[in-house]
Amino acid sequence: MAFKSEDDKKAYWSRNINLMITLLVIWALVSYGFGIVLRPMLDAIPVGGVGLGFWFAQQGSIYAFLVIVFFYAKKMRELDKEFGVDE
């Protein structure tokens, strides 16, 4: 096993899971939240003749997905290094 101790292994996994869950919450919020369920509220803020909710459904959520994926990759590279399991 690549980890120094059993505790390290647990710590690494739980930090990975926490990061993943946080990002999945944002993932759900920008698409299912802002784009669909909360759209009527967000559309009060006008964007291009429609509203912010419409913008999230057709543009914003996709940009947010991109940021999420690259952010996760970056954070995990740092985490791998910290625990000495990087390649």
């Binding site: 784009g35 959520s61 996709i62 999420i68 994926v69 996760y72």
Partner: peptide, 24 residues
């Protein structure tokens, strides 16, 4: 119109699941 947003979000949002939960 707006209802077709399902395709826009659905076919891109899956990559978040792939990158975070499956691919590595």
């Amino acid at each position: 119109g707006y209802d077709a947003s399902i395709f826009l979000m659905g076919w891109t949002g899956g990559y978040v699941l792939l990158a975070l939960c499956l691919a590595p």
